[in-house]
Write a protein that binds this DNA or RNA. Sequence first.
DNA 1: GTCCCAATTGTTAGCGCTCACAATTGAATC
DNA 2: GATTCAATTGTGAGCGCTAACAATTGGGAC
Lengths: 337, 337
Amino acid sequence: MGNTIDRRQPRLEDVAARAKVSHQTVSRVINNHPNVSSATREKVEAAIAELGYRRNTAARSLVTRRSQTIGVLAAEMGQYGPANTLLGVQQAAREAGYFVSIEAIKEAGADAISDAVRHLTDQGADGIIVIVPHDGTVQALEGLTLDVPVILVGAAGGGLFSGALVDQKLGARLAVSHLIDLGHRRIGHVSGPQDWVDGRSRAEGWGERLREAGLPDDLLIEGDWSAGSGYRIGRQLAAERTATALFVGNDQMALGLLRAFSEAGVRVPDDVSVVGFDDQPESGYFTPPLTTVRQDFEELGRRCMGAMLNALEGGAGAGTIMVEPELVVRSSTSAPA
Amino acid sequence: MGNTIDRRQPRLEDVAARAKVSHQTVSRVINNHPNVSSATREKVEAAIAELGYRRNTAARSLVTRRSQTIGVLAAEMGQYGPANTLLGVQQAAREAGYFVSIEAIKEAGADAISDAVRHLTDQGADGIIVIVPHDGTVQALEGLTLDVPVILVGAAGGGLFSGALVDQKLGARLAVSHLIDLGHRRIGHVSGPQDWVDGRSRAEGWGERLREAGLPDDLLIEGDWSAGSGYRIGRQLAAERTATALFVGNDQMALGLLRAFSEAGVRVPDDVSVVGFDDQPESGYFTPPLTTVRQDFEELGRRCMGAMLNALEGGAGAGTIMVEPELVVRSSTSAPA
DNA sequence: GTCCCAATTGTTAGCGCTCACAATTGAATC
DNA sequence: GATTCAATTGTGAGCGCTAACAATTGGGAC
């Protein structure tokens, strides 16, 4: 075996010669075409194995005009949510025989988005998944006239694009309902930035649920998702002591709040109950362990890729994939004093 | 303008026709060949702009045998470290005109690694960056006969592959030195799994530094990187109270420890000092804020990609990129009681 | 003006694959 | 044995690009 040491990669024709068939027959075997006799198929498969043949993706892409590549555009790719969504996308893509090409942007401006998308289409991406949960993303994309399916993560579908998101409003309602059920009447919200879709949805869900219960919805402070902003807001809240419970836009800000409360001698949950959002792996080990709303980012990513595959096969586009969040009750919430 | 509404993408020849030159001249302009008169160049560039021409990557790859794609293989891609390393790689790749294709694996077994690498080379990746910090990764790769440069993140270079890593031993020594300087004499280590390269290096650095100082190095407990394992170990340590200071393998386990100590009434840092490793964005907001060793993952990724570019241009391979960690002192450490 | 050489431009071939179509085979029917 | 038809296999072209080489141009040196 193996007397050809430094020849280049075998190609279709080499396999064909070895199996004594035409290159087209080999192509048929590779692509699982039905009309190949099993004897021929075996011969060809043997030749492929002997030669260690691997199909050349570039040549295939050139003629099929398909790259088998999905482009993923992400802001904040180092963060827990986007990173795990990406993971889910990649897993599903792999199973379907697709490659995943990534593009990270630092600022979610229209130019950055447009450049990144351009880069992805230059590579011949068959579809694009956009994980940029800011306002303005849709507009930035709409100006772009793309001829591949686009799925927006964290936004509802409609118009030109499909969407995939965890039901943020539902998550917020779960959190607030939990606090109401415990007996809280003054429930504040430390929100994410209001120019982020998620930040706004959570705030809306919070407000809606409070109004339904006939409770005041005037206690809203905007943070920037970071633990630092949570800490600053926490110091302020510790001084004011207006609410008996707080729904916080994500677990990182909740951590900052917890820290600030601890410093100020405000006990959680005895003096104030706190609910977070995301359920990062660490949240169960905060002091105290955090009651929070779990988002399954990996699942989101997988289903997103599912929708993409569907769109690539000519299925209906512009729908919305919705993943349900789940309340995880731990020790940072209790009935008011 | 734009009277061609549903024609397919323009190609080299269309641009050539419009600019009244040969397709080869257009190719020269695109590739910045020197011998093109500026008049011709301008004509061609105008035609490119008018037609909105974009080069077809597949066709180019087919003939050049270069895909301009770097494959990144990562285990634990959703974690802070790998996700941010990936981010750094992507940024540097983009600047150099490369695409980044990702491949995540769930289990770091030899088969999974080999499959993933295969998938990446099938796509024609020009180089592969491997972020799989387990023992056995090198062996798994060595069995693979790859004809593209490979860089291992989190391992020293040598043999067939280059390496890129944060100096784990140095990090551990910084942490232990800090504790020694504070006056601690019984310094334990909660390590990561010892079949992870990083876990072992940190433990080695801890042991070495202790022995240099003539202190006992017998207090080592192995965790699994998770906050949960830190919590369990913390409960045990709280009961034993053998050490006055603990160097913990990462911030997540440190968080678990902090939680366990808090429950057991062990005060940090008054009763026990704790140092973590990684410096995740949240670590400054733990209770108490965590003294830890910062690793700059993004920088690691960027330099890794730098080494890759160098290798792709025929530069020397098999070196080791070393990024220095840095001690960040916060409130979880103090002099022993 | 002629020659020469460098700078610039054009021509041809082919990268490895799939598509559309043509050719062959072999069993079933008369 | 001739005819038909489906199943199987083969042939030719071309996807859009770059590399190698060929052809053309223009400006000095003589």
